[in-house]
Design a binder for these strands. Structure first.
Lengths: 248, 248
DNA sequence: CCAAAAGTGTTCATTCTACACCCATGG
DNA sequence: CCATGGGTGTAGAATGAACACTTTTGG
């Protein structure tokens, strides 16, 4: 590949505006998106993995992702991938990082942009899209060997999720719309791998003023039923724009 | 452009492994890097801008950047751009975000990955690379209209810098290698647009244990000379890996 | 009755904030 | 002498950690 460049472009030769250098050499990149989809179930953080239904890495574990079409924005492509899996559209979806090692894709120079998404497992039942032979929720702390550089992409996404969860109420996206403070605490503890004092955790959460008291209680639990809360997105946005940071 | 895709690929038709679909349609992307280079001078945060020496946007203000060569890693390209400007190699350089609006580049589909870098203005005197007609330090709070979507890229980089500066000692990269606590405080205040109590700021900084007392003092200042400190990168890395976070 | 998890109050230590005050230098 | 910024100590407020205790449900 080295020769491609040497043959066509002389670095010092940039007195020629690059706009007028034969462009074809530069327009050889492919672009893809890869989504790290997080869910939470039975006290454990899960990641959605597929078994690839296409070469290369046919039959191997991978992150759901696809090539971006030439007429498609990157974010749209990521949304499309998720829609193909979950049938829903407006998910929490955020760019993580872009990966461009020259040799990361066997078929040529493919750049990939990572995204992370969060979905409520109870509410959505993802199914294999056309490009996947199967789809599975895998424990985030027990990830198999993945295709391409997907282990790296996943590790980075996990780090970013953990950074965010302590600073924004990202956690609420992982829970059903109504939840108890105990469930919320278990979630945070699971994500961050630490444990909090119950009394202190509640005080902090309630003082953030982003929880709506639903005036409802758990039912059929073999212990005192917990009060249900939901997340006040509107209030959160207001406070956020005023500079609050929601540190745990 | 819409037709390109429709003509060659039927989404439902992905029973055909995409690896075997004519690949040319997907390998039409160009990739570039754009660097937001920060410096600090006379109590003000500056950004390095160029006047473009090439079409498109010839003669307009822009961020320094260039197309990535097909055999070149993204980070290497960003490093190359900076090296062309500053003649130095190992700068603080970090990816920010990737931009891929379909119509962001008039010459075709060009994705760009943003980076931010920090250099000590006193130590380096950047010069126009071949692709630029001129190069200028511009006040970060007074940025002109830039080419492409560079205003967006810059805004994002600025936000990320501010987020980082409160959490990591990024600030030290902006100062000369030996500095007084007063200079450090002025830097933080300038970056974040807030002011700190002198006594408290010093206590916090010194308690972080990442400053080396140089046992030297300022000279020829019309006030009591301040003690000079330098940043202990090694110590910082140690503490960082143990989980310290250096919040201000 | 017990187990299990909800929910609350209080103490003590730590950290943060504000502010007052002294110090060393050039002019 | 003054102006300027360097440098430090302390009181009181706010916050955080630890822990003990009560409550409500199902079994």
């Amino acid at each position: 590949m080295k020769e491609l460049y040497k043959e066509s472009v002389n670095r010092e030769g940039f007195a020629i505006p690059y706009y007028e250098i034969p462009y074809e050499k530069f327009f050889q990149f492919g672009l893809s998106v890869d989504c790290v989809v997080f869910g939470y179930h039975e006290n454990k953080l899960k990641v959605l993995l597929i078994k690839r239904g296409a070469k290369p890495y046919l039959g191997k574990w991978a992150l759901p992702g696809d090539l971006v079409y030439p007429n498609e924005n990157i974010e749209s492509a990521a949304n499309r991938v998720l829609r193909d899996l979950t049938e829903i559209d407006s998910l929490f979806l955020e760019q993580t990082k872009t990966y461009g090692q020259v040799d990361r894709h066997p078929a040529g120079r493919v750049i990939t942009t990572g995204f992370y998404a969060i979905i409520d497992i109870a509410k959505h039942d993802p199914h294999a899209a056309a490009w996947a032979d199967g789809i599975y929720w895998v424990d985030a702390d027990n990830i198999p060997q993945l295709a391409f550089d997907h282990n790296q992409i996943l590790t980075d996404a996990l780090r970013i999720l953990r950074e965010q969860v302590g600073k924004q109420p990202v956690g609420f996206e992982l829970l059903p719309s109504k939840f108890t403070l105990g469930e919320l605490q278990a979630l945070y503890e699971g994500l961050l791998g630490v444990s909090f004092d119950k009394a202190n955790f509640r005080k902090r959460m309630l003082s953030m003023d982003v929880l709506i008291d639903c005036d409802e209680y758990q039912k059929n639990v073999p212990h005192r039923p917990g009060k249900l809360y939901s997340f006040d997105l509107k209030r959160y946005s207001e406070l956020k724009s005023k500079g609050s940071n929601f540190e745990i």
